[in-house]
Protein backbone atom coordinates (compact mmCIF):
# COMPACT_ATOMS: atom_id res chain seq x y z
CA UNK A 1 0.00 0.00 0.00
CA UNK A 2 1.31 3.43 -0.92
CA UNK A 3 2.08 5.74 1.97
CA UNK A 4 -0.44 8.26 0.76
CA UNK A 5 -3.23 5.73 0.98
CA UNK A 6 -2.08 4.38 4.33
CA UNK A 7 -2.02 7.85 5.90
CA UNK A 8 -5.34 8.83 4.34
CA UNK A 9 -7.02 5.82 5.93
CA UNK A 10 -5.37 6.44 9.29
CA UNK A 11 -6.08 10.18 9.25
CA UNK A 12 -9.76 9.65 8.56
CA UNK A 13 -10.09 6.81 11.07
CA UNK A 14 -11.39 7.35 14.60
CA UNK A 15 -8.50 7.94 16.97
CA UNK A 16 -9.57 5.02 19.19
CA UNK A 17 -9.15 2.52 16.36
CA UNK A 18 -5.71 3.89 15.42
CA UNK A 19 -4.57 3.88 19.06
CA UNK A 20 -5.74 0.26 19.45
CA UNK A 21 -3.83 -0.77 16.32
CA UNK A 22 -0.66 0.86 17.65
CA UNK A 23 -1.14 -0.73 21.10
CA UNK A 24 -1.32 -4.15 19.49
CA UNK A 25 2.02 -3.48 17.73
CA UNK A 26 3.60 -2.15 20.94
CA UNK A 27 2.75 -5.41 22.76
CA UNK A 28 4.87 -7.52 20.42
CA UNK A 29 7.65 -5.12 19.42
CA UNK A 30 10.12 -2.65 20.84
CA UNK A 31 9.04 0.91 20.14
CA UNK A 32 11.47 3.81 20.53
CA UNK A 33 10.34 7.41 20.10
CA UNK A 34 13.01 9.14 18.03
CA UNK A 35 11.27 12.48 17.70
CA UNK A 36 8.46 13.10 20.16
CA UNK A 37 5.25 14.52 18.69
CA UNK A 38 5.36 18.27 18.27
CA UNK A 39 3.46 20.90 16.40
CA UNK A 40 4.80 22.50 13.25
CA UNK A 41 3.51 24.39 10.23
CA UNK A 42 3.02 23.21 6.68
CA UNK A 43 2.72 25.83 3.96
CA UNK A 44 0.14 24.99 1.29
CA UNK A 45 1.48 25.25 -2.23
CA UNK A 46 -1.17 25.70 -4.90
CA UNK A 47 -1.28 25.99 -8.66
CA UNK A 48 -3.60 28.70 -9.97
CA UNK A 49 -5.45 28.00 -13.21
CA UNK A 50 -5.07 31.37 -14.95
CA UNK A 51 -1.32 31.36 -15.60
CA UNK A 52 -0.57 27.89 -14.19
CA UNK A 53 1.87 29.39 -11.70
CA UNK A 54 2.43 28.43 -8.06
CA UNK A 55 1.49 30.44 -4.98
CA UNK A 56 1.16 29.91 -1.24
CA UNK A 57 -2.42 29.81 -0.01
CA UNK A 58 -1.64 29.73 3.71
CA UNK A 59 -0.45 27.40 6.42
CA UNK A 60 -1.89 24.52 8.41
CA UNK A 61 -0.88 23.31 11.85
CA UNK A 62 0.41 19.75 11.81
CA UNK A 63 1.81 17.33 14.35
CA UNK A 64 4.92 15.39 13.36
CA UNK A 65 6.72 12.52 15.01
CA UNK A 66 9.24 9.76 14.24
CA UNK A 67 9.57 6.41 15.95
CA UNK A 68 11.34 3.11 15.42
CA UNK A 69 9.77 -0.29 15.77
CA UNK A 70 12.29 -3.11 16.19
CA UNK A 71 14.90 -0.77 14.75
CA UNK A 72 12.92 0.26 11.65
CA UNK A 73 11.88 3.90 11.42
CA UNK A 74 8.39 5.18 10.83
CA UNK A 75 7.05 8.70 10.66
CA UNK A 76 3.77 10.54 10.70
CA UNK A 77 2.58 14.04 9.88
CA UNK A 78 -1.07 14.90 10.43
CA UNK A 79 -3.10 18.08 10.51
CA UNK A 80 -4.14 19.15 13.99
CA UNK A 81 -2.61 18.59 17.41
CA UNK A 82 -3.57 15.05 18.33
CA UNK A 83 -0.19 13.88 19.66
CA UNK A 84 -1.35 10.40 20.66
CA UNK A 85 -3.00 9.62 17.36
CA UNK A 86 -0.04 10.92 15.34
CA UNK A 87 2.35 8.84 17.45
CA UNK A 88 0.17 5.79 16.86
CA UNK A 89 0.21 6.50 13.13
CA UNK A 90 4.01 6.62 13.15
CA UNK A 91 4.16 3.28 15.00
CA UNK A 92 1.88 1.73 12.39
CA UNK A 93 4.02 3.24 9.62
CA UNK A 94 7.19 1.83 11.17
CA UNK A 95 5.56 -1.57 11.57
CA UNK A 96 4.53 -1.35 7.95
CA UNK A 97 8.09 -0.52 6.89
CA UNK A 98 9.44 -3.44 8.89
CA UNK A 99 6.88 -5.89 7.53
CA UNK A 100 5.47 -6.25 11.01
CA UNK A 101 2.02 -5.15 9.94
CA UNK A 102 0.97 -8.18 8.00
CA UNK A 103 -2.77 -7.86 7.81
CA UNK A 104 -4.13 -5.04 5.69
CA UNK A 105 -7.71 -6.24 6.10
CA UNK A 106 -8.45 -3.84 8.92
CA UNK A 107 -7.16 -0.90 6.88
CA UNK A 108 -9.10 -1.90 3.80
CA UNK A 109 -12.25 -2.29 5.83
CA UNK A 110 -11.76 1.16 7.34
CA UNK A 111 -11.18 2.62 3.90
CA UNK A 112 -14.36 1.01 2.62
CA UNK A 113 -16.37 2.57 5.44
CA UNK A 114 -14.76 5.97 4.88
CA UNK A 115 -15.48 5.95 1.16
CA UNK A 116 -19.05 4.79 1.76
CA UNK A 117 -19.65 7.64 4.19
CA UNK A 118 -18.24 10.22 1.80
CA UNK A 119 -20.26 8.81 -1.08
CA UNK A 120 -23.41 9.09 1.00
CA UNK A 121 -22.56 12.67 1.91
CA UNK A 122 -21.85 13.29 -1.77
CA UNK A 123 -25.28 11.91 -2.69
CA UNK A 124 -26.88 14.40 -0.29
CA UNK A 125 -25.08 17.31 -1.94
CA UNK A 126 -25.72 16.04 -5.47
CA UNK A 127 -29.45 16.31 -4.78
CA UNK A 128 -28.93 20.04 -5.15
CA UNK A 129 -27.84 19.62 -8.78
CA UNK A 130 -29.79 22.05 -10.96
CA UNK A 131 -31.95 20.78 -13.82
CA UNK A 132 -32.43 23.77 -16.07
CA UNK A 133 -35.61 24.03 -18.08
CA UNK A 134 -35.85 26.34 -21.04
CA UNK A 135 -38.45 29.08 -20.55
CA UNK A 136 -39.01 29.89 -24.24
CA UNK A 137 -40.62 27.76 -26.95
CA UNK A 138 -39.47 24.56 -25.38
CA UNK A 139 -36.45 24.24 -27.65
CA UNK A 140 -33.22 23.63 -25.77
CA UNK A 141 -30.94 26.64 -25.62
Amino acid sequence: MKKRRLFKILSKADRGIVLDMADEIKKRTEVVVIKAPEKALAMIKMREPVKESLFYLGEVIVTETTVSVNGVNGTAVAMGDDYDKTLAMAIIDAAYNGNLFADETVLLELEKEQIAREEKENAMFMKTMVNFKSMDSGEPV
Binding site: K39, A40, L41, A42, M43, I44, K45, M46, R47, L54, L57, E59, I61, V62, E64, V77, E118, N122, F125
Partner: peptide, 20 residues
Protein backbone atom coordinates in the same frame (compact mmCIF):
# COMPACT_ATOMS: atom_id res chain seq x y z
CA UNK B 1 1.68 30.79 14.33
CA UNK B 2 4.89 32.75 14.80
CA UNK B 3 5.89 30.40 17.63
CA UNK B 4 5.89 27.33 15.38
CA UNK B 5 8.54 26.13 12.98
CA UNK B 6 7.54 25.66 9.40
CA UNK B 7 8.91 22.21 8.72
CA UNK B 8 6.86 21.36 5.66
CA UNK B 9 5.68 22.61 2.31
CA UNK B 10 2.89 20.63 0.72
CA UNK B 11 3.26 19.12 -2.71
CA UNK B 12 1.42 21.15 -5.35
CA UNK B 13 -2.23 21.05 -4.37
CA UNK B 14 -4.54 20.36 -7.27
CA UNK B 15 -8.04 21.74 -6.81
CA UNK B 16 -9.25 19.89 -9.90
CA UNK B 17 -9.60 16.87 -7.61
CA UNK B 18 -11.66 18.81 -5.08
CA UNK B 19 -14.37 16.80 -3.30
CA UNK B 20 -17.09 19.18 -4.37
Amino acid sequence: RSTLKRNFYTTVTDTRNMRM
